[in-house]
Design a protein around this nucleic acid. Structure first.
Lengths: 127, 127
DNA sequence: ACAGGATGTATCGGTCGCCGATATATATCG
DNA sequence: CGATATATATCGGCGACCGATACATCCTGT
């Protein structure tokens, strides 16, 4: 009925990386780029458009919030801070990735999912 | 100069999940949906458009290839198989995710990246 | 003095991945 | 005989991503 819902937040990998980079301490935009590059060993280098897009979406979702400004050497720095909900989301997504990677390693190794400790094993193969 | 490069393959999460689902054995499209749902404990349920889009891209990138057809109960099944390059890509992406999740857990736990065993520890924090 | 690069912010436009909806066909169940 | 499940595939729109661009300030090299 509502003409257009605000489009639910999607935890993309880049949004996750930004959230992760801001987790230890508040940073300003430009510093986030470097933090993400370090986190990924240089594999992911955000451009400005990607960075601010991700920050906007994270802010709109309430996972990140502005944390004041500072002027250093005449240049403005706008800081961002992870909210409580943001910390929870970061931990949740991290656990999801860890579980997925673990499952993937087992799958690639050739283990049948019938082993013990397999959390949610669904009903037998549909066919 | 070439007017349009074929757009390099991007290993998105969904493409990765499809690749992973096909790794143990060849499957037909519809079965991949179920396999991905199982792999992710129901978190990711592909629609037809997402599935065939991912299969097309994986095939174009040479990570997956057609593996014949079969008619079961009057319905056609088109099978897909992971290529050698596909297996390598799957292992590589799995390792990337594992490393990222591990780094993320350390980051969220508050560990300084100066700890032992940290593979690529970059230069000290820029600021 | 001035050009160029690094720092720092932000927006625009195009490409492309994702996803709901839709279409077609067959077998099965109520 | 319609609904549901299996199985294929495409279309159209939305939105994430990214290169390019713009603007301002400070530092360095020539």
């Amino acid at each position: 009925m509502s003409p257009r819902a605000p489009a639910a937040f999607r935890m993309t990998e880049q949004a996750y990386l930004v959230l992760l980079a801001l987790s230890p301490e508040p940073l300003h935009g430009y510093a986030v780029i470097g933090a993400v590059r370090d986190l990924t060993d240089g594999a992911t280098v955000l451009g400005a458009a990607s960075l601010y897009g991700a920050l906007d979406r994270l802010t709109a979702a309430g996972l990140v919030e502005p944390a004041g400004e500072a002027v250093v050497d005449g240049r403005v720095r706008r800081y961002y801070r992870v909210t409580e909900a943001g910390h929870r989301a970061a931990q949740q997504e991290t656990e999801r990735l860890r579980a997925l990677a673990a499952r993937a390693e087992r799958t690639l190794r050739g283990d049948r999912p019938t082993g013990p400790g397999a959390l949610g094993d669904l009903a037998g193969s549909p066919a």
